[in-house]
């Protein structure tokens, strides 16, 4: 009897209650993220709706509704949708832009890059300044611990594209660090 009551009290929220709580908690946040990209009230509202629809399909990936991790996860999805709406699925900063980077050997002395506090801050800035298509895969992969397959499913792109973008994101940052090291010499 006691166990039954305890179970009743500790009853997990249903998926519907969960998505309702997610919307209630993060609706303004989602709007601001979307608005920052779209600069349009109606479109930002649409992006919020789309984000919730996308979250409905991935609600199991959300554990703690109020956590920063959940917020970042929602933020990445919302921003992805907002950019999709803005560019109507035409990818900006075409992947080809970075193709040369992938093949280019970064000639530098391995010891020239020292990871100190200053560099840590710089790397974070570089990550934040990345094009969103590279940033979002990096956030989801390294920040959220999602697999390449999960990211591909969530963003509606192929796993190959996810892998390419991850690699290019890292190359871009490495290149910036190397350039800076060369400039300081």
């Amino acid at each position: 009897m006691f166990l039954f009551l305890q179970r009743l009290i500790n009853k997990k929220p249903t998926k519907k209650q969960k998505i309702e709580a997610v919307y209630k908690k993060w609706r303004f946040f989602m709007y601001r993220v979307a608005y920052d990209v779209l600069k349009n009230h109606a479109m930002a509202e649409d992006a919020v709706q789309e984000t919730i629809l996308r979250l409905i399909d991935n609600i199991d990936k959300i554990d703690d509704i109020a956590s920063r991790r959940t917020r970042n996860y929602i933020g990445v999805i919302c921003r992805h949708i907002a950019y999709d709406m803005k560019y109507r699925k035409v990818s900006i900063g075409s992947d080809a832009e970075y193709d040369s980077l992938a093949s280019e050997a970064l000639s530098r002395d391995a010891l020239s890059v020292v990871i100190d506090n200053e560099n840590v801050e710089r790397i974070k800035e570089y990550i934040k300044s990345l094009n969103y298509i590279y940033q979002e895969v990096l956030f989801l992969y390294a920040g959220e611990g999602m697999s390449v397959g999960e990211i591909a499913q969530l963003l509606g792109i192929s796993t190959k594209t996810v892998q390419k973008r991850l690699e290019r994101a890292r190359i871009k940052i490495r290149q910036k660090l190397a350039e800076e090291a060369t400039d300081n010499e």
Partner: peptide
């Protein structure tokens, strides 16, 4: 250079979460 890249990639990955925190804090 390969080794440096591997180390740097690990650093980049470890900082991605923090960068996301900072980016989305603003919203």
């Amino acid at each position: 250079n390969k080794n440096t890249d591997t180390v740097l990639d690990a650093v980049i990955d470890s900082l991605a979460g923090e960068a996301a925190d900072e980016l989305f804090d603003a919203y």
